[in-house]
Amino acid sequence: MKILLRLLFFVVVVRLVVLIILGVRIKNKVRLPKSGPAIIVANHNSHLDTLVLMTLFPIWMLGKLRPVAAEGYFFKNRWLRWFSLHIVGIIPIKRQDFGVQVHPLAECSTALLRGEILIIYPEGSRGRPESLASLQSGIAHLAKRHPEIPIYPVFLHGLGKSLPKGEILLVPFFCDVFVGEEIFWTGHKKDFMELLSQQLKELAAQGNFPPWE
């Protein structure tokens, strides 16, 4: 029943919003993984980020897609908690523990071992719309644990304009998606974080985005 609801939500609601109302223009879609395990690393501007990233994959891969999200925000009330866990299918983590203890990453690791595809936002929160904040190193811990699993940097533009933090009114803008080439754990945390940040910046530089002030 929950699986059916999840399928219905993504086939009807999400695809209507993402493909008809917003519209996605994607560059290098072929680079996306055809199967798990894999990690998608993206910049974070809006709640729509997750929905757009999940629409990039064919609907039969829905069961494999797991966005990693902060427990504090998505467990605010029982409805949101139920929706996040069962419909969106998030892996909840405690924000303050991310990267400090090994424990919060355990469920991410298990999911990867099951062949699932994680969606991770290393900026942490959505932050100021349409600007890239500094990356948190939780992703490095995960990469170190699974050095053989490919990590795909993806840059999203436009969703922070459509639905920025703190707004409930959705205003349509085209969403541009830039998929980068896969990277792997480099052996050093600092190198790895620099590589990842560099990749995201290079993807962002591919777009010629109009100012939004």
Binding site: P164, V171, F173, F174, E213
Partner: peptide, 19 residues
């Protein structure tokens, strides 16, 4: 219209006007 508004510079404050 969506393509036009995505192409030109717009102001953060004008989200509701664009709606």
């Amino acid at each position: 219209l969506k393509e036009y508004l995505s192409l030109i510079p717009t102001r953060r404050a004008d989200r509701r006007v664009l709606f």
